[in-house]
Amino acid sequence: MTSEPPVFSATSDEQPPRREPIFNFPPAITVSILLLVALFLLQDYLLPESASEALVISLAFSPVRYVYPLAEQNLEWLWTPLTYSLLHGGWEHLLFNGLWLAAFGTPVVRRIGTGRYVVFWILSAVAAAALHAALNWGDPTLLVGASGVISALMGGACRFAFPASGGTYNPRFGHLYPRQPLTVVFKNRTVAIFVLLWLFGNLVVGLGVPLFGEMEGNIAWDAHLGGFAFGFLCFGLFDPQPRRAI
């Protein structure tokens, strides 16, 4: 039996082992979205204003925390590189991230499984926060949102979700395509166009041009880049499937 995962084409007589409805998300994605919604409701509606502010300050990421000796601070510096990714600044922010999480988290979870997905979330959140801190050292502003993690999921999906021969993602069995090596992945026209458009969008945001309304004024484009780079470059560490032979 070959060790390569099955690859199906539109002209093949073979069929995938099962058909997945487009909106049938893996349980891990459903739980992730429900967790983000629950924390947002707690933050904005269920807690008194003073308690809500304290919650955000204790869970949001801020580069200024790492300027001073860590031993002289509370322990927020320890968990905020992860917990900021669970908070959101408004319904628009939450809805936007929830849609992208469903779109790109679904193929990644189907590919790597729930356990690896949890570890991927943790490490990609840290990677996104690290680049944000490096480029905004000592900044007292607060960073919240799952965008860095979602960017990492996008980067990871670029390594396998688009057929090597070109074309778009197939929601039924796109997670079964072999992983494309870094040395050849940009020969895939779909991947190249997607990455260029994604980078252009973040460049525009970084220059201060609003793309999606008022919420874009505070977007941490650098955290997006850190997350995407982590997902794109490190996805092979999480992928149980072999890469495509060169």
Results as ranks from 00 to 15, higher is better:
Val118Phe: 05
Ser124Ile: 00
Leu225Glu: 04
Met215His: 04
Phe238Trp: 01
Asp44Met: 11
Gly155Arg: 04
Arg65His: 13
Arg65Met: 14
Ser9Gln: 09
Leu39Trp: 03
Leu101Glu: 13
Val67Asp: 06
Phe23Trp: 05
Leu78Lys: 10
Leu87Ile: 03
Val126Ser: 10
Pro171Cys: 10
Val31Cys: 09
Arg189Asp: 10
Asp222Val: 15
Gln43Thr: 09
Gly206Arg: 11
His224Glu: 11
Val7Trp: 00
Ile22Met: 08
Arg65Glu: 13
Ile246Ser: 12
His175Thr: 11
Ala229Lys: 05
Trp79Pro: 08
Arg110Thr: 04
Pro69Ser: 08
Ser58Arg: 12
Val67Ile: 14
Ala134Arg: 05
Thr141Cys: 10
Gly98Pro: 02
Leu142Thr: 13
Met154Gly: 09
Pro17Gln: 06
Gly206Lys: 09
Leu207Cys: 05
Thr106Phe: 02
Gly206Asp: 11
Ile122Thr: 12
Gly89Lys: 07
Glu49Val: 14
Leu197Cys: 14
Phe162Leu: 06
Trp79Met: 12
Leu95Arg: 14
Ala229Trp: 06
Val108Thr: 01
Leu41Thr: 05
Leu35Ser: 09
Phe173Asp: 15
Met1Lys: 05
Leu211Met: 07
Glu53Asn: 09
Asn218Lys: 13
Val118His: 03
Val108Tyr: 00
Phe200Asn: 12
Met154Asp: 05
Ala134Lys: 03
Phe96Asp: 02
Thr190Met: 10
Gly90Arg: 06
Ser58Trp: 10
Gln43Arg: 09
Gly115Arg: 14
Leu182Met: 12
Ser58Gln: 15
Tyr68Phe: 14
Phe212Cys: 09
Ala146Gly: 11
Gly201Ser: 15
Asp222His: 15
Gly166Asn: 03
His88Ala: 15
Leu42Met: 10
Trp121Gly: 02
Gly166Phe: 00
Gly155Leu: 07
Leu196Ile: 15
Arg110Gly: 05
Val109Lys: 00
Met154Lys: 05
Ala223Gln: 07
Leu196Thr: 14
Ser52Asn: 13
Ala152Phe: 08
Met215Leu: 07
Ile193Gly: 09
Glu92Lys: 11
Val149Glu: 01
Phe212Met: 08
Thr190Trp: 07
Pro16Thr: 05
Leu101Asp: 10
Ile150Val: 03
Ala192Gln: 12
Trp100Thr: 09
Leu225Ser: 04
Gly90Ser: 15
Phe40Lys: 04
Pro6Ala: 06
Phe212Ile: 08
Pro242Leu: 00
Leu39Gly: 08
Ala128Leu: 11
Cys234Arg: 11
Ser50Glu: 07
Ala103Leu: 15
Tyr117Glu: 01
Leu131Pro: 01
Gly156Pro: 07
Tyr84Ile: 01
Trp221Ser: 06
Pro27Met: 08
Ala103Thr: 14
Pro6Phe: 03
Leu153His: 03
Ile150Glu: 01
